[in-house]
Design a binder for these strands. Structure first.
Lengths: 274, 274
DNA sequence: TACCTTATGGAATAAATATTCCATACTGGG
DNA sequence: CCCAGTATGGAATATTTATTCCATAAGGTA
């Protein structure tokens, strides 16, 4: 065999598969064909599953893995699992190492944030559910008035939403509690509240959301976990996680999601008005 | 427990998670929180992996699975593996599909922003000059007081800087012009002003910067062009461009730069105080 | 047809992984 | 401060899953 190294990317895997498929004996050919069409199963199946689905014995499947250049099924599976699970490097540890090696320049720190941001964006694209997004957009687009809240780390996201809506002449109101003024009574039935909150969830945000609920306003939440308290409040939720570097995060993913939401709503409203 | 049946869909799983999370003892709570943020790992990880990532013992994780209504980890994992197979397409293909589908759904727009964000981050990492960054950090770290200004699109960046400094107990002041109150006279010699401005450069930002200059305060600017007016004002400038999608940008790059700046300053101050 | 080579099935073994169990450490109420 | 009642860690065990091995079958050639 010309190249006996194990593939490390999907592309290499595919190339290798094509390369060896030709001239394979019957059973091994079955393996190749099955894998060609069901590549996605590798990450979550056992050899027994795959081999019986391909109509061969486990041992035959094993030989196939080896022909592909892997040491066995486990190694091949590992590759697919790594691809699937987002590759969240452990930035906290990396940061610590960086500090210990005395290489903690601003430039290396920036590199970490950039890397974390890229990973987060990738993960956002992969994990967002188009249906929830669509739902969120229409709920917001249909509202009479848009209210926005978000404190601490979520505040920049809230202000950016506010800015974007303003630019598009969409009526929106940022509840920023300036001067301890509370405008909660502006929230009425038919309105929507966009609540942005990440762990640890700010009390004020939760409270205002609960209040909005009592007013029969719709709630759309941008949050960071499946079990965020926003779910208890009956919100249409959009989950987005940003990898953290030490104690901080760069907000790339949440902001991208927010601006998408705003622009989509703007476009929707425009076309509705015509 | 009211409902002890094992969840069978993601929605049910989420509902159950939210339901039980409240009032869980420490370790089990850790499991719930970790799973809330890393749901997608379940399909391809072992109990050992997950439990150590969540910082608990495998046995604790096991108890968590049972609380969720599953007979054990295997049953829970099976649910996620089944789901996984249904919508696999990896990130790259998914983005491509989204964009190729042509129609302007929120999901395709998100894909554009994600892509733009990634490109911007890459560009930032490549184009930033470590020396300027280093210079900016030391200028800020040495200042007696940090002033921050940024309007419109730059406002989220300014607020995030403000948040980050606050978190690290670094004295900083956001000049937000609330109630048309102007705190320009708080700017003195020995202070630094971080001015964030992107084209079209907001007048107020330019004015305050010019004023700070007359006070002999140092200026650090985060801006977007080599010919930004900030250069004329004798500022230490950091250039960062974010690719735009239509009329909007997601701010990934500027925010990453800003947080880097803040964290570096925080670290510098810490070590100076020791 | 006899012989050699390669392919295959299935059972035996090794390794990884899940699950249980129990001793010990907490925690809150009296 | 003591005593339940929980919660927790860690090691022991059961189960599943991967991997190897070998006897047998199939395929090709002289």
């Amino acid at each position: 065999m010309a190249n006996n190294a194990a593939p490390e990317t999907l592309e290499e895997f595919q190339a290798k598969l094509v390369e060896i498929t030709e001239g394979l004996p019957k059973r091994l050919r079955q393996c190749a064909d099955y894998i060609g069409q069901n590549t996605d199963r590798i990450a979550v199946s056992t050899v027994a599953d795959l081999s019986s689905a391909a109509g061969v014995q486990p041992s035959a499947f094993m030989r196939f893995c080896q022909l592909m250049g892997f040491s066995g099924y486990s190694q091949m599976q590992k590759m697919f699992r790594d691809i699937h699970v987002q590759h969240w490097p452990d930035y906290a540890t990396r940061l610590k190492k960086m500090r210990e090696s005395g290489d903690e320049t601003p430039a290396t720190l920036l590199a970490e944030f950039v890397d974390a941001g890229r990973a987060s964006l990738e993960n956002l694209a992969r994990s967002i559910d188009p249906k929830s997004l669509e739902k969120a957009v229409s709920v917001i687009a249909d509202a009479r008035m848009i209210h926005i809240i978000g404190f601490n780390r979520a505040f920049p996201v809230a202000t950016y939403l506010s800015y974007a809506f303003e630019k598009m002449d969409v009526p929106a109101m940022l509840h920023a509690k300036i001067g301890n003024l509370d405008h909660r009574h502006a929230i009425r039935e038919g309105d929507v509240l966009i609540a942005v909150t990440f762990s640890a969830y700010t009390q004020e945000t939760l409270e205002l959301t609960a209040f909005a609920k009592t007013q029969n306003a719709e709630i759309v939440a941008i949050t960071d976990a499946l079990n965020s308290p926003m779910h208890q409040l009956g919100a249409t939720t959009l989950n987005v996680t940003e990898a953290d570097v030490g104690a901080f995060r760069a907000l790339s993913a949440p902001l991208s999601l927010a601006i998408t939401l705003a622009v989509s709503v703007g476009a929707r409203r425009d076309s509705d008005n015509q």
